[in-house]
Design a protein around this nucleic acid. Structure first.
Length: 551
RNA sequence: GAGGGUGUAGCUCAGUCGGCAGAGCAACGGCCUUUUAAGCCGUGGGUCCAGGGUUCGAGUCCCUGCACCCUCACCA
């Protein structure tokens, strides 16, 4: 403490001293000391690195005794990673270094790094040649190596050449003969045991979350593998991956509020895609008979643990198929990923254990409605009574207080199918915990779907529900341009104008050239990853979820 | 948009009834050649989210605002 006990530290000198005590300042001071040693604290290309996992695998073949340091060339490795633990016990330093495959202990002894052991020749053969690479191989002199080791901080990224051994306690250790600083970490990382737990900080500075919480990295690794898996399933079936516009002059393919933007040169308003559907169908018209896209969709709606304004949908179309083929693909992609990527058929999600063993139940919309809502969906009076009981009308009134045409509950005008769907959402969805297909939806809710041949009031559509969430949505696609024009023109009372399907003349014109009958499917990738990784918030599976600007 | 909760050191968290701002890790100085979240001795570090108010006195009570989380609604 500077100054007497009664004084607040506010003099210039105090402020400077406070600032100097800051950990960032400490680290910057070390940075300068490192530079003074002639070492570039930000490294350069570092070639021929063996991953920690591969080093462990190699060590498994060597039968190294506790206390032993291997002599042979086969025990010499180059490794790199971030220092996550650092234990300095005098003229011996142990650090735990993390790379993408896991942790490995590096051991540094003053004697060894000072040249007590000859530098292995194995790396000379693969020594880089270019000018840039020559710089990368410019190791500090041996006496500098030890000083450098003493100046390391938690969070620094280091590279090392060394020989494998085991400590007395048997811990596999890379005994370092040459140490390279690859990047100095100027900010103290989170606490080594708890990591970063503050959720806001984890989302705002995801890089800190990732570097300090292996579990978080694991989620994004799984996400990538699930996507790879889906891609592989589709490729095997002859699908090709395409890209469709995010900037669209007319939004369509779903019922959602769009984001609006503007192109300056064309002086033209554009919408960010709410769905790639109408473009992928144009591909079908053009003869790309099996297409898929991992499509970023943007919907200007609320944010919740299950909704992010931008999200990723796998959408695909298969010519000459129908929605039964799409059910098979759902089971193959999601059920297969559970089995082959996660390695389990039962996965915990919140308090529920979900069973992904296929096949999944295929239930008729009318049947599940009758079972869980307790009324016949075609009995308008009964549905209306049920809706009143569930408070559907009150919710509508609350949502649209400005509507002049609504004065009382009974005067809320909702078309029957809209009311049915609101009752469905309120009663059925949460009951569907294990993967369940719900087939044959009320036709008026499905402007892009072929009608059921036996029932003009039903559409050949299914949604896949898991844990009460809509995970997949699929149709036997409507390819009759006249019917398509009619359904896009029809307005339903009870759905807001802004989210209504919009007439897209160019799309209908495309249908007039002839679109093959097809099955189409959308799978919510973020939600699928949530379920398969046990992440109960969508923000935990999106690297950089949308946040308000910081206060 | 409505309701509930949270915000204290770089990180993880205590802080009782309104009475000197605390711990562990991290940092700094010192010791240590086999550590495992190393250990031991010593030291420094605070806009208690922001702004008002009540009070002799506010991290604590009240009001307003901000950010985040949860529930509901829209939505996938």
């Amino acid at each position: 403490m500077v100054g007497c006990a009664h004084c607040r530290p506010h003099s210039l000198r105090d402020i400077v001293l406070d600032s100097m005590s800051d950990q960032i300042e400490d680290r910057k001071a070390k940075l300068e000391k490192i530079r003074a040693l002639g070492v570039d604290p930000y490294g350069a290309r570092f070639t021929d690195v063996t991953t920690h996992a591969d080093i462990r695998a190699a060590a498994g073949q060597m039968n190294i005794e506790p206390g032993q340091v291997c002599e042979g060339e086969e025990a010499c490795f180059r490794a790199a990673g971030r220092v996550v633990l650092y234990r300095d016990i005098g003229s011996l330093i142990f650090m735990t270094v993390r790379d993408r495959t896991g942790d490995l202990q590096f051991g540094l002894s003053k004697k060894m790094i000072m040249g007590g052991t000859a530098v292995p020749d194995s790396h000379e053969a693969t020594k880089p040649r270019s000018h840039e690479e020559t710089q990368a191989s410019a190791f500090p002199a041996p006496e500098v190596g030890w000083k450098l080791a003493k100046l390391l901080d938690l969070g620094d990224i280091v590279g090392a050449d060394g020989r494998l051994g085991r400590t007395k306690t048997g811990e596999l250790t890379l005994w370092v003969t040459r140490l390279t600083l690859l990047s100095k970490c100027l900010r103290p990382p989170p606490e080594k045991w708890h990591g970063l737990t503050d959720v806001e900080a984890r989302y705002r500075r995801r890089y800190v979350d990732l570097l300090s919480n292996p579990d978080s990295q694991q989620v994004f690794l799984m996400r990538a593998r699930i996507i790879d898996y889906a891609r592989e399933v589709l490729r095997e079936r002859g699908f090709i991956e395409v890209e469709t516009p995010v900037l669209q002059p007319i939004y369509g393919g779903a019922a959602a509020r769009p984001f609006l933007t503007h192109h300056n040169t064309l002086d033209m308003d554009l919408y960010l895609a709410i769905s790639p559907e109408l473009y992928l169908k144009r591909c079908l018209v053009g003869g790309l008979e099996r297409v898929f896209e991992f499509s970023r969709c943007f919907r200007n709606e609320g944010i919740s643990p299950r909704h992010n304004p931008e999200f990723t949908m796998l959408e695909l179309y298969q010519a000459y198929g129908d929605y039964h083929d799409m059910m098979d693909i759902c089971e193959r992609v999601i059920g297969g990923a559970a089995r082959d990527v996660i390695g389990a058929t039962k996965i915990q999600f919140g308090k529920a254990e979900i069973d992904y063993a296929t096949p999944w139940p295929r239930l008729k919309y009318a049947d599940v409605f009758g079972e869980y809502a307790g009324v016949d969906m075609n009995d308008e009076a009964a549905v209306r009574a049920k809706a009143r009981e569930l408070g559907v009308f009150k919710k509508v009134l609350r949502e649209e207080p400005g509507r002049r045409d609504i004065f009382a509950e009974d005067q809320v005008e909702l078309d029957h199918p809209v009311l049915v769907n609101k009752v469905f959402e309120a009663t059925v969805e949460e009951q569907l915990v294990n993967p369940t297909f719900v087939l044959d939806w009320p036709a008026p809710l499905c402007p892009l779907t072929r009608r059921h041949p036996d029932d003009p009031n039903a559409a050949l559509r299914f949604e896949l529900f898991i844990h009460g969430m809509e995970i997949g949505n699929a149709y036997t696609e409507l390819n009759d341009p006249a019917v398509q024009r009619a359904t896009l023109s029809k307005q339903l009372r009870g759905e807001e104008d802004e989210t209504m399907a919009v007439m897209d003349e160019d799309f209908v014109e495309a249908l007039e050239y002839g679109m093959p009958p097809a099955g189409g499917l959308g799978i919510g990738i973020d939600r699928t990853v949530m379920l398969l990784t046990g992440s109960t918030s969508i923000r935990d599976v999106i690297l950089f979820p949308l946040q308000r600007p910081q206060a």
